[in-house]
Design a protein around this nucleic acid. Structure first.
Lengths: 109, 109
DNA sequence: ATTTGTAATCGTAATATTACGATGATTATT
DNA sequence: AATAATCATCGTAATATTACGATTACAAAT
């Protein structure tokens, strides 16, 4: 056990969950904010901004890349990361949809 | 190791991360959607809607309650859950703020 | 007092995440 | 070719999450 049963949920639910993971750790929120505000972009600069080891930051960047919300472009010996605008908008829209889905009328409890 | 260093991040970053965890598992997304659309409310009904064991659903409900995004009111022998509108709006606003923080002009990479 | 229905909690196993030092890979620069 | 700079990956340890059967807790109904 201990393995999420992704197959029993809808694609939308799994996608929301995956995109939410991008924001589900404060370090990743911090990284996304740095990238979003273009305060940093190169991996090394991000490392400098955060009180975490380089390996740890790299791991978070890898996770964000897996989710698809950031892209990395090589500029040796540097790697420059940036928000993937398409996925960012997808996330915004998906979350918007979820947040809008509350039926405001009286609660049943 | 293996322990998130929450103390080195801002309150806002930690709160976003915590709220994101509410959506970071498909089962919790499904639960929140059921509650949001008032398709279910009583714990047992939620269990019936999901292909997960009662104990597992209860654990997810507990986590959602810890985060504060849902409330539970006792109506013995049932427990009725519902979205906490205040926290829901807080989440919507926080995520909105994060999503809006992207500077659209040219990327540096 | 016993039974019934419902939900929480316990115990446990499997897997995932987080963190970091150390090492490796890559590519300019010398 | 050797060096320096930068980032990814490996290995590992600690902790967290996910899932479920079994049990417990609780209150209503009998």
């Amino acid at each position: 056990m201990g393995l999420t049963k992704t197959e029993v949920f809808t694609d939308q639910q799994n996608r929301v969950a995956d995109l939410a993971k991008a924001f589900a750790h404060p370090a990743r929120v911090a990284i996304l904010q740095l990238l979003a505000q273009k305060k940093a972009c190169v991996c090394g600069d991000i490392v400098d901004e955060l009180p975490l080891a380089q390996a740890t930051v790299s791991q978070h960047l890898k996770e964000l890349k897996r989710i698809g919300i950031i892209q990395g472009s090589i500029d040796p010996p540097r790697v420059c990361y940036c928000i993937d605008e398409v996925v960012w908008q997808e996330a915004r829209q998906l979350f918007g949809k979820v947040f809008d889905s509350v039926i405001v009328e009286k609660s049943c409890c």
